[in-house]
């Protein structure tokens, strides 16, 4: 799920940037530092939308670096248990398959894959129904439901299932492209 929230961060800036474009430099550094990171508490920071406030800089003794407290608005993505996501398969093995929904990695183990789909080893490993009508392989688009999340301080990992109504293959590899 996506949220638009206000976060705060202390940015350290090298003294060489002190000058007319200090503010621009701060914002670009903020974006560079923050976007794409993950905190267990808020989820993945997808984009910084605005900088609310930049506080007074504090010169660190000894180094000359200056610390600015920066308040900024950003969009975060936080997966929850029970949430339904569309994802792209990244890897298939006999234990199941991995998929990505944006920044989050999801593993679907083979007992959370419908029983009529069987693992087919070979050049392109895949899960396939016996009549071949549905085939999940690398780069397939899959709609799945999150059944478990593992949230660390800097990382979120999910377990998904496609064993439910309206879940499973939504697009073949390259079909959407």
């Amino acid at each position: 799920m996506f949220f638009h929230i206000i976060l705060e961060r202390n940015l350290q800036l090298h003294p060489r940037y002190f000058g007319p474009h200090l503010r621009d430099k701060l914002v670009s550094k903020l974006i560079h530092d923050v976007e794409g990171t993950c905190s267990g508490r808020h989820g993945f920071v997808v984009a910084v939308t605005a900088v609310e406030n930049i506080g007074k800089g504090l010169i660190r003794d000894g180094t000359g670096y200056v610390t600015f407290p920066v308040k900024y608005q950003c969009v975060v993505f936080r997966p929850f248990k029970g949430e339904i996501l569309e994802s792209v398969v990244t890897m298939v093995n006999k234990m199941g398959f991995f998929a990505e929904a944006g920044p989050v990695q999801i593993f679907v183990s083979n007992h959370l894959i419908p029983d009529d789909m069987a693992f087919q080893a070979g050049d392109v490993p895949c899960y396939e129904t016996s009549d071949g009508s549905v085939r999940i392989q690398k780069d397939s688009e899959v709609r799945l439901k999150i059944v478990g999340t593992r949230v660390d301080a800097t990382e979120i990992f999910c377990i998904g299932t496609i064993k439910d109504d309206f879940l499973g293959l939504t697009g073949d590899p390259g079909g959407a492209a």
């Binding site: 890897m91 093995n93 006999k94 991995f98 593993f107 490993p125 593992r150 990992f157 377990i159």
Partner: peptide, 16 residues
């Protein structure tokens, strides 16, 4: 558990 799956995957044979 399956939650550890990401760390377990071996990049060569893609198994756990």
């Amino acid at each position: 558990s399956a939650l550890d799956a990401l760390q377990l995957v071996n990049p060569f044979d893609q198994n756990f």
